[in-house]
Design a protein around this nucleic acid. Structure first.
Lengths: 191, 191
DNA sequence: ATGATTTTTTGATATAGGTCAAATTGTTTT
DNA sequence: AAAACAATTTGACCTATATCAAAAAATCAT
């Protein structure tokens, strides 16, 4: 039980105190999975029934528009990754997930997640508070997408993904930012 | 107690069952306030300590960039309005709130909100679930801001604010969408 | 390693939409 | 009902960035 799940527990403890009961409930329900670079983690053809907490590596969520992949975000170490709407509503959504790098993650099934919410009110609080954090990021991103030049968008991306930005291929960054990859290449070129 | 708070209760009941205890706890903590058109509801100079549930009317949240007002969103009937990050962290944030129309609202103090979260776990669940809804809207908006023409952005705005879009002045819509108001005027002109 | 993909860079061109300025229309206020 | 003020529209022009095309560089598979 002094498991390899330290980082996962530490993540929860940023928001709530973890009782021993909750710790062991988590421990028994969380499994370990790994993916190879390029592997599909979630297919939009199916309902998303799993949430991944990344231990090591890098995922990407994306969807298709006019036959092209549009990257949505890039969850890395110590972050959750899933198809949020699909997971919550148990219906299909547009998002795919794949692994940008070889990735090790913890996996929580949606049923187990439901169990935890039903039996541990502090899990509800954790969800509310951690969603608040993500909420803030989304709002910043919305601001960054309005009234900014391509250069400013790229700068904002580097801030947001400070330690990580060089691990993400240029084309994916471009679609994440909503600019042409040629433009991004030129921006990177100067300075 | 068969109060005028029906709509507020109905809103909660979209997500959770309201026990009588919670109903009366809400009832005793929620007060009624009204604002005149143009009135400032929240000043970014101060910490946001109140959350408003709009009964009738229309608010706007906005911030300043380069001396100009940028509209963030337009909460109307049966929606909450506050400065989210400020309310949650009890620190100042950049957002102002004003009333686009004469508005009647229910008001909940942050302390009371804290009390409700501490004593009614179903309130935590409500918050988690309702944030999920908003979350989805933010993601759609992010998608709409990337890779779309000004016309498509405006169409998306009309969808999002279907019954309400004509109540919002053009200049505010333009800054909400991240386009010049001259451009928006021209888009509106044709067809 | 070497050829075959895939990704990134570079170049030339076109255009959507920004900016500035002024005219028009609409809305308050006295 | 004016006068004053604010919001919207129209016009002229310009620039950032998209698009199309091809070369160069990097990565992958045999």
């Amino acid at each position: 039980m002094t498991s390899s799940k330290n980082k996962l527990f530490a993540h929860f403890e940023q928001y709530i105190k973890l009782s021993d009961e909750l710790k062991s409930a988590l421990d028994s329900r969380v499994s370990f999975v790994s993916f190879k670079k390029g592997e599909l983690v979630h297919d939009a053809d199916s309902v998303c029934t799993k949430s991944y907490f990344i231990q090591k590596g890098l995922f990407r969520t994306y969807f298709y528009k006019d036959g092209k992949e549009i990257s949505e975000y890039f969850p890395a170490e110590n972050e959750w990754c899933n198809s949020p709407k699909s997971l919550m509503t148990r219906q299909k959504d547009i998002y795919y997930i794949d692994a940008i790098e070889d990735t090790e993650a913890f996996c929580l099934q949606v049923n187990d997640l439901g169990f935890l919410f039903d039996h541990f009110p502090e899990m509800e609080r954790y969800a509310r508070l951690s969603m608040g954090t993500v909420f803030g990021h989304l709002m910043e991103r919305i601001t960054s997408l309005r009234f900014t030049t391509a250069k400013e968008k790229y700068d904002h991306f580097i801030e947001t993904y400070h330690g990580i930005h060089h691990r993400i291929p240029l084309g994916m960054v471009a679609s994440y930012l909503g600019i042409a990859q040629e433009t991004l290449s030129r921006i990177r070129g100067e300075k």
